[in-house]
Design a protein around this nucleic acid. Structure first.
Length: 317
DNA sequence: GGGGTAAATACTTGCCT
DNA sequence: AGGCAAGTATTTACCCC
């Protein structure tokens, strides 16, 4: 099905050195720091895990080069510091165990402190950057609006602040953050879509999502159907009057506590459908269903309930 | 097109290890 | 922490008017 999208992306090869993004044809930017090539527009990562071949330090002679050149595992995007987890030893010895000459000690000492600072201070930063990159990439692939991305970033940052990341994968958390954000903004996407673009299992995303939302006390889902009304109203192109009417219906529904456990989006869609009839704009259940992604069944059920409580209320008043 | 129903699925929650 | 099971809501597919 939609797997093809993901696959094509993975297939994007290094040797291609394309000038434009295969998805949105934006320009490609090289990001040396992350060892990635990314699309400037949509943030699509074309080539993760490319090894940064540039020198980390300047070397003035062969000895120095031996001391400082990188040895160790290739970088990986999966660990916050990309796997550069080697430390500079505390002994003033070079790789052959020879004692380093005095004049070099000072420099070596400086390198140590620099290395240390670099790793502890920037670890969080890089973690964050990577997660944010993931978020933009996924959000682009899922066609989510920008502000959802923003929220996801905020959620993720809060998660970092509260140390929720320990023992959890960045990608999982990033996906969960985006999922949460999408729901908060009333533009939810099914969970499987997220797992498709992130290569994280559904269950993991859900778990991470539940965990974060509980720990952060996120109030997920607008819980308020009213927030869906403007969106739906505009996509369905109904009059202001009908919109107002729909909101009215929802307000009474809320005071009558009809809406607990029901999906807010469904309620909103139903309210719009109902109001379009009250104002003689006669939308069909079909069109409402298509535009809002709410099934006809739900629209029917909810709108009947809505009208019930609405009438009851107008009788009593 | 409106309306209904049954079976399949999705999502949540609580329980258990 | 993580997996399973039960309960509720939603979707899907078909039906009739």
């Amino acid at each position: 099905m939609e797997n093809t999208q993901v696959d094509e992306r993975k297939v994007a090869e290094e040797s291609h050195s394309e000038r434009s993004c295969p998805e949105c044809s934006g320009s490609i930017v090289r990001d040396e720091e992350h060892g990635e090539k990314t699309c400037k527009q949509c943030g699509l990562v074309l080539d993760e895990r490319r090894i940064d071949r540039g020198p980390e330090w300047r070397a003035f002679d062969s000895n120095e080069r031996d001391e400082k050149s990188r040895v160790g595992s290739p970088t990986t995007g999966l660990i916050h510091d990309k796997g550069l987890s080697t430390k500079i030893g505390w002994q003033d010895k070079d790789a052959n165990g020879q004692t380093v000459a005095d004049r070099k000690r000072a420099r070596l000492q400086r390198l140590r402190t620099w290395d240390e600072r670099y790793r502890v201070k920037d670890a969080q930063e890089r973690n964050l950057k990577q997660a944010l990159g993931e978020i933009t990439r996924m959000s682009c692939a899922l066609d989510l609006p920008d502000f959802v991305e923003e929220t996801a970033a905020t959620v993720y940052r809060q998660g970092v602040d509260k140390d929720l990341l320990v023992g959890r994968s960045i990608e999982g958390m990033a996906t969960a953050a985006l999922y949460a954000a999408a729901r908060q903004h009333g533009t939810p996407r099914p969970l499987w879509k997220f797992s498709e673009v992130s290569r994280v299992e559904k269950a993991r995303i859900r778990r991470a999502y539940r965990y974060t939302s509980r720990e952060l006390g996120l109030r997920i889902e607008p819980a308020d159907p009213l927030e869906y009304v403007p969106q739906f109203a505009s996509t369905l192109g109904i009059s202001d009057e009908a919109t107002r009417q729909a909101q009215d219906l929802l307000v009474t529904a809320k005071t009558e506590a009809i809406h607990s456990g029901k999906s807010p989006a469904g309620l909103a869609a139903a309210a719009i459908y109902a109001s379009s009839h009250l104002t003689n704009e006669q939308l069909t259940q079909e069109t409402v269903s298509n535009r809002t992604n709410i099934s006809k069944v739900v629209i029917r059920k909810r709108y009947q309930e809505l009208l019930d409580v609405y009438e009851e209320k107008s009788h009593s008043s």
